[in-house]
Amino acid sequence: MGEHIAFLTIPAAGHLNPTLPLVAELVRRGHRVSYATGPAYRSAVEAAGATFVDLDWVPRPVKRSPGGQTTADLGAMLTGFIRASRPVMPVIERWLRDDRPDLFCYDMMTFIGPMMADQLGLPEAATVANFATNEHFDLTPSLVPADFDPGHPAFQEFLAERAAFASDFGVPLEKVAAAGAVAPLNLVFIPREFQIAGETFDERFHFVGPAIGARIPTADWEPPGSPLLFVSLGTAVNDRPDFFAACTEAFAGTEWKVAMAIGDQVDLASLGELPPNFDVRPYFPQPEVLAHADTFLTHAGMNSVMESLLHQVPMATYPQTPEQQANARRVTDLNLGQQLPGLTPSSLRSVVAAIADDPAIRKGLSGMHAHLSAAGGPSRAADAVEAQLAR
């Protein structure tokens, strides 16, 4: 009988989806896996073979001001995360005490994981779905907006909420909302070659790359032909009817077949009559679409970037948060795509056409795909987990 491995991930597709192929591989090897997250992800977790631990964890939608994320947006997001964490704390503690795991794997972006590992004395590991942080490279500056003002009332509200949380649960203040802590084992779902300052990361970090595996069920989809443009702003910061309207105007009546995912915050009716070359839905089965896509117009969330690289699809990036800005810069720097300069129909069409035909981008995609293939994926990640268990 294998060991018990417990996973805790914030209820966000970009953080949860990369862990599921690893969960499936651990289950295949005979380990018992329990997985705690929000209720929307029960079916995906169970499809990977884990026992689902239901948390009343439904973070508020992440908002972005039209000109980009502001200090007010950041403060509201952080405050919302602290408040959403309160009701799940007793359930998480009870789960880990009653069914003590041999290894506790938590998402690097939640402070609850290292806090609980410290309080209960659990062997721990972190899953990292974005850029990793170490003593030489700090992700934190990439997570704050350009206009960051620590004295802004919205950020001060977050600081007060954080202090109240620490006091109520009896933990040091620095343990709350401190994303990016380095665990004894860190499973990073990108290749080292994509990581900023990748050469500075030591043996605690395993850059295993992404993998296609169990995903949240979505509607069936048939490829409409070529050339295919896939448009998506992901599942979190996608309340951008102006963006989707601009895409509709830019590519209506062109040779492009457009699959456009608008999320669940935009009213489809607000886009008016859709051109016949458009298929617009809240969500698509993203890996399947990317397997047929010629270009990807994306927010540059890390999960989307990695899935695009798996299929060697050039990216036109339109980031919505500072974290996505860092991803988009890396895409440009490594010749994997270009960032949109604006939302005019001409700029949309010109960037999409340019990246589809750019030999330098095709070469960059081919090289990065080789690094992804060599990273090892779920098998290497499971090897690292088993090595940690054996210590």
Rank of each mutant, 00 (worst) to 15 (best):
A374L: 00
R215W: 07
A129R: 11
P210Y: 03
I190R: 09
Y41K: 10
N303I: 00
H152Y: 12
D118S: 09
G301I: 05
E135N: 14
L310F: 12
R391S: 00
C105K: 08
K363G: 13
V53T: 10
L340Q: 02
A12G: 10
A166N: 08
N327R: 10
E249C: 10
D147F: 05
A252Q: 07
F148L: 01
Q388Y: 08
L309T: 12
G67D: 06
P276Q: 04
H369A: 14
I92N: 05
D294M: 03
N335L: 09
V313H: 13
Q325G: 15
D357N: 13
L290V: 03
P59C: 14
P241V: 01
G263F: 08
A12H: 11
G342M: 12
P322L: 09
G2W: 09
T298D: 11
A36H: 14
G364F: 09
G49L: 08
Y283G: 07
L336A: 13
L271S: 01
P227E: 02
P90H: 11
T133N: 06
D383P: 02
A24N: 12
M109L: 14
F194W: 03
G301T: 12
A291E: 07
M115D: 01
S167R: 15
P227S: 13
V176N: 03
P114Q: 11
E222I: 07
T133D: 00
E307G: 08
F244A: 06
A214S: 15
M77D: 07
A219G: 14
G337P: 02
L20M: 07
A360S: 15
E255L: 03
V27Y: 02
R86N: 05
A236M: 01
E249L: 11
I262S: 13
V305D: 02
G213H: 07
A375P: 00
A236Q: 06
S85Q: 08
H371P: 04
L143R: 05
T140C: 02
S34D: 15
L233D: 01
N327G: 07
L229Q: 11
K175H: 13
L290Y: 13
P153N: 00
M116V: 15
Y106Q: 14
T317W: 05
P184D: 11
I82H: 00
L173V: 01
A354S: 15
H206I: 14
R60K: 15
D279G: 00
A316D: 07
V58L: 08
A183F: 06
W57M: 08
A117P: 05
D239L: 07
F131C: 12
L96G: 03
F52I: 08
A353C: 04
A211C: 03
G376H: 11
G68D: 04
P59L: 15
